[in-house]
Design a protein around this nucleic acid. Structure first.
Lengths: 165, 165
DNA sequence: GCGGGAATGTTACAAAGTAACAGATGTCAG
DNA sequence: CTGACATCTGTTACTTTGTAACATTCCCGC
C-alpha cells in the first residue's frame, strides 16, 4: 500500500519524489555494475537531473544544469550522456518535444508509450506489451522489420486542465 | 483490382506513381473546395512535392524545391505551407525524423501509424482505429485528455534489407 | 607502468524552427 | 463597385537543436 492513494501514473499525481528518485538512481547504479557500464559523474548527473522532475527536459536545459555543476558546458557533453542513457534504457527521447525524460522502468525490456502534457510538459510512461496489431500486420505484409516503436499521446493532464478553468 | 499484385502498403512496393500522386492531388483539391480552404500555389507545390515520393522530406529539402520553382526561399514559406497541410490532414510530421510526408488517407479522419525505414526514409502509413488500450486506460485513470497520438515504428524495409545483403 | 579502448574537452558548424512586421490579395457586405 | 477585414505572402533576423572532428585524459587489464 502506497502513501498516496491517488490513482494513475506517478508523474501525474503527488508522490514522495525523493523516494521515487532515489529508487530509480540506485536501480540504475546496480544495473550498470551488473552490465559493466560506466555511470560516470556526467552521466549520473544527467540521469539525476532528469529524475529530478517528471517533466521532459531539453538537452540545453540539462546543459545549463551541468554547467552550473561545473561538469561541462558544451553541447556534446549533454548529448553524449543522453546517448548513453537512451541507448541503455535509462532515459527516453520524447520525439514530439525534442526533449528527454528518465525511464520509469529501466532494466526491464519494454516498449513504452507516453502521455505528454503539452501545457506543463510532464510525461508519464506506460509499458505497452506490443505495437498495435494493425502496424505489425502491415509490417509483416510489406516485409518491413520493426526495430523500435515510439508511441506518444499528446494532450492535457488533469492538473493543467483544472488550472485552465 | 490493381495493376501491381505485390502485397503491402504502396510506399514499399512498385506502383504506378503518377496515378497515385494524381489521385491524391485531385482529392486534396476537391476537399479544399468543399471546405473553403485555399490550396494556394505554394501549398499545392509543397503537397505535390511530398506526393512526389513516399520518402519523408525535411522542411529544408522542400524549401530547396520551392526555391528552384521560384515560389519563395525563406524558411517561413515552407513552414507555413506545412502547417496548413498538417493542420488539415493532407500531410503528417514524422517526429522521429523531424520530416514530413503526404497523407495517404486525406479527408478521412484517422489516427495513423507509420512504418519508417531508417535506411531510405520511405514512410508507409497505416490507419489505426484507436490508440493502444493500455495508453487510453492510463490516460483515463490519470484524468489525462488525449488529443492526438503519434505512432512511429522505426525499422528497415524489405528493399533496404535485401540491398544490405 | 603501460597499452588500448572508452570517456571527456573544445572548436566550430549544420540543421531545424520561429517571431515579428510590412505588404499584397481574396472575399464579402453593403 | 468598393471599402473593410481576414488571410496569405515576403523578408529580416534570430533561437533552438544537434554534430563532426580532433586532441586529451582516464581507466582497466595485463
Amino acid at each position: 500500500m502506497s502513501a498516496s492513494s491517488a490513482p494513475g501514473p506517478e508523474a501525474f499525481r503527488p508522490h514522495d519524489h525523493r523516494t521515487c528518485r532515489g529508487r530509480a538512481l540506485s536501480a540504475a547504479r546496480a544495473l550498470c555494475a551488473e552490465r559493466r557500464l560506466r555511470l560516470t559523474p556526467a552521466r549520473a548527473f544527467v540521469l539525476e537531473t532528469l529524475l529530478g522532475s517528471h517533466r521532459a527536459m531539453t538537452a540545453y536545459e540539462i546543459l545549463d544544469a551541468l554547467s552550473a555543476a561545473g561538469l561541462g558546458n558544451q553541447p556534446p557533453v549533454v548529448y553524449r550522456a543522453l546517448d548513453f542513457l537512451v541507448a541503455n534504457g535509462f532515459a527516453h527521447r520524447i520525439e514530439r518535444l525534442a526533449a528527454f525524460t528518465a525511464c520509469s522502468h529501466a532494466g526491464t525490456a519494454h516498449n513504452a508509450g507516453f502521455l505528454v502534457c503539452r501545457s506543463c510538459r510532464r510525461v508519464a510512461e506506460t509499458p505497452l506489451p506490443r505495437p498495435a496489431a494493425e502496424l505489425v500486420e502491415a509490417a509483416e505484409v510489406a516485409g518491413f522489420v520493426i526495430e523500435r516503436t515510439a508511441v506518444e499521446a499528446e494532450g492535457v493532464c488533469a492538473r493543467c486542465r483544472e488550472a485552465a478553468t
